[in-house]
Design a protein around this nucleic acid. Sequence first.
DNA 1: CTAGGGTTAG
Length: 592
Amino acid sequence: MQFAPRRKWNLLIKSSNKDGFFLESLDLYSSLLKSGCHGDHLTFTFVVKACAQLASLWSGRKVQSHVILLGFQSDVFVQTSLLDMYSKCSSLSEARQLFDEMPSKSVVSWNSMISAYAKEFQTQESFRHFNEMRSCCFRPTSSTCVSLVSGCSGSTSALQQGQSVHCFGTKLGFHSDLRLWNSILTMYVRFNLIDDAISLFDSMKERSAITYTTIFGGYAKLGDCLMVLNLFNQIRLKQIGLDAIVFVNLISSCALLGRLLIASSVLSLLIRNGLDCEPNVAAAVVNMFAKCGDIFSARKFFDSVTKKDVLLWTSMIGGYVHADLSRTALDLFEDMISTDLPPNKITIITILSACAAIGSLSAAEQIFEHIDAYGFKSDLQTQTSLIHMYCKCGCLERAEEIFNALSHKDLAAWSSMINCYAFNGKGEESLALFKEMLKDKSIKPDAVVFTDVLSACNHYGLVEEGLKFFTSMQLQYGIEPSKEHYSCMVDLLSRAGYIDSSLEFISRVPVQLRSQLWTPFLSALRTSNGAQLENILPNRWEVESESTGNHVLLAGISASLGKWKDARDFRMSIDKRGLRKEAGWSRTELYS
DNA sequence: CTAGGGTTAG
């Protein structure tokens, strides 16, 4: 009697899983129990899979207890599904225990265990199981290789191992397995080996939407957004099944590119493909318009989306911060809260940056209840944003309090505090903290923190120290100086009165950046005592051609030196040129 | 069992 109805339940649960209605699958299972039945090996594989997809560890453990009560411990299918469930619920220890206690194992059991370690980027353990699997005479499948490679993508030292799987897979005859190629392509992109990724991509005879998504990411890392657009046009002609994810990647490249006309045409493409209302796509579109400097179109699109998710709201709020409209960002955050949609961590980080931009502590205090309410208080990124916010509001002590209480500090946390001291005029404290950070060998300073360090030297007038850091930045840490670094050094040297050194420094800067350094040079010259207009005369043409602002500075310096005729000349040249403004983007009407 | 994405602080 029991067999027939259970079979019906099993079919119902199976089809509910297939449609992605995992919660309903669990409901069906509890109805089955209520009807006086219990599960069999098929019921358990389906129900456990639903728990895995929902990442519901609690339900999964409950179902496992039923499995044990009914004596299904030796069923390899049920046990493997439980193993995968624990892996998907990130309970590696329970997965491992189950695996060790399995009376018999299948290839899929081994694959699941390897994949469990790969997901946690425990590369060595995943390879150890791979070797053990082979010594137990199990023949790895292409899925085994895919899991191993994806594990390598996440650990810093596993590139060679990943490449060896590539060879191994080819030997076993998986050379036509697209998923394996795609996972290797992902590995190269994650390791920033974009050239290798591109040559692999070029050699691939079969490509899917996933292949293109991955290589888009690679080109975006290179900053070659136009290549992304070119490739995208290729797939449009090839009629590869395009999904929302490919578009999301295309859209983020357009955001990086920052060209409004291209952004607008991408939007019409989305509308034509019926993808503009996809929740995943919408947030990217808002971000794209905001990064292209068209906050009006961003808002117009935002308003047109009927089902707004957290990402969309966050994207719009971030857009306002980016557009220097942080007050509006705060208003929009209030609107979001009033819809009862809970903010996520990134919303909080974004809104804190809005408070920082305004420099208003009272605005920030209203955010605190949300930080408490949603339990972001102990999150490192949130704390870093709080430090930054207190810094910009002038509450140095509050920033220090948070920083000192951090149990673990990453580069961003250190550098926000270093910046906080520098911003509040405490050059000495800033540099002391930087030196303390360097003692921690696990932290590698980057271009951003060096900008703060150099500006701290600048603030404190520490010429020798500044030069020392500028050199070690390049030689010891291999960081190419940016315009900000150069301009900081010019400011430092000139304001300390080292006009000749400053000029010599400028002459050694790559020519494409050099012309932009005259403005910081002249500004510093105006406040330093060693101002001598003759110093810059050999470069006069370059100085004058760069911007109208330089003429104003030159006129000011001449006047302060009592060279009234020069001052008058510079003033007149401004009138002749006219106060030219930078060419800006004109806003295009998109929807009407 | 298996490959790709979106909002983000210093």
